[in-house]
Every structure is written in C-alpha cells, then in structure tokens.
Design a protein around this nucleic acid. Structure first.
Lengths: 111, 111
DNA sequence: GGTAAGGTCAACCATATGGTTGAATATGAA
DNA sequence: TTCATATTCAACCATATGGTTGACCTTACC
C-alpha cells in the first residue's frame, strides 16, 4: 500500500478514524483526549492515530510529555480530486456534512 | 461495516478497484472485458466487482450470458460531501484527475 | 444434443486489520 | 527521589482481505 490514495482511502474507511478527524476539525488535541470518547483502549487509538499520520491526514507534535494531534486537511486533496473526476457534484453541501458529523460523533464508541 | 461511508471508502482503497471505476468511466463493460487488462484471475475481478456493487459504486445487469457493469457515480456523493467538509478545495481540477487516470490505468496489472 | 464461453461458488492460503493486555519509556510534579 | 501521567511497544488473538484453484451453472452456438 505505497500509493498515497490507497493510504488515504483506507484511513477514511474506518468510522473511528473518521470520527477522530471530525473531532480534530474543532481543535488540536492530545492523544489521551482524542481517546476519551471512545470505548477502546488508548493503545488502539494510538494505532489509529499512527495510521492517520502515515496517510498524512494528521500531524503529531510532541510537546513535553503530551503529543498533540493536528488535522492536515491538505492530505485529502488528492483523494478529493480523484473523486471529483467522477462527477457531477453539488457545490459543497455543508448541511449534509454537519449531519454526517452529528451521526459520527453521536456515539463514536460503537462504530 | 454497515455504514455506507465505510463501504465506499474501503472500496476505493484498492488500486485495482479504482482502476476498474476509471475504466467504467469510458463505457459500460462486461466482466470478462473488465478483467482483461489485469494480471489476476477472473474470479478475483468478479469479487472486486461484487465489492464495488455492494458499495453502490457500480450496477450489474445480466443480459444473456454476459453481465454488464455500469458506473454509478452517485454513490460517491456522500463520501465527497464528507471530504468537502474538511476543506478548502480548489474548484474541480480535471487536469489533476486526468493525471491520476493516466497513472492508474497505465499498468493496472501491478497495483 | 454436444461443446464452448461467461461468471460465480467453495475451499483454501497468506497476510493485513483492529482490537486486547501488560510491560516499557519519557516527562512532569511533589 | 518518588510517584503519577502520557504514550508507545510487543505479543497475542479473531476476523477480514485479496488472491488462488477447480468444480459448477447458465446461456449461446453448431
């Protein structure tokens, strides 16, 4: 899975990871805080964050003993371009996006 | 993996499947013809097509003994909306898309 | 009818994925 | 120093994924 599109799409295929990205849309967060709403171990979240980082979707910076996670939406660009090539898409429908966020953040612990 | 976004993104995470979608952008195709450029068994391609169909990205219709595959770009809409929520994306960059297609179709047999 | 073409199914295999736990490593605070 | 917090590592487990092969069904053709 060397192809960056492979990595980005695979990263996005997991609901936990999409929920994490949505959370980071609000603000940068420490690993522990990212993990808090999820019903899974910190180690599991740490792995998800690694996958997101390898796909370039987040950046992680360690400051002191806490590691901060920051959204890197630019990594979505290539995937977005790929998809746009197929369609006929409406101009950005932010309402629809808000609905997604609501759904995915509602109960991220049961993906 | 009940969530439709899960299915769509997972389907897109495989280079063979993305190449198939790109091929279908040109025209509807029979399963055998879809399989032709790939260095893998017909059965493998058949499975990929099932995954694409379950994600709603293609429709399959059997006419006579040949099964036709047809692109269903609408299935990309939800995923596209999700991604658009993160960005700041340029207006559709078709040149970039053409480059992707060129890359992915160049040698789909070695994903 | 017999035979070939188009696809799928079933069983199998190797590897990847998503999770767990417990131990280990920093770093900060008392 | 000692202790607690923040995070990762390593080993493990169950299941999913992407591929193979060979048998199978259906539909066309001679």
């Amino acid at each position: 899975m060397t192809n960056p599109l492979d990595q980005v799409f695979a990263a996005l295929a997991d609901p936990t990871r999409r929920a994490i990205l949505a959370m980071l849309l609000e603000d940068d967060m420490a690993v522990t805080d990212v993990a808090e709403p999820f019903a899974m171990s910190l180690a599991a979240i740490s792995k998800h964050l690694q996958i997101l980082a390898e796909a370039g979707l987040i950046a992680q910076e360690k400051r002191g003993r806490v590691k901060w996670c920051k959204l890197e939406p630019d990594a979505l660009r290539a995937a977005s371009v790929w998809m746009q090539g197929f369609g006929v898409f409406d101009p950005v429908d932010l309402d629809a996006f808000e609905r997604f966020l609501a759904d995915e953040l509602a109960d991220p612990s049961s993906p």
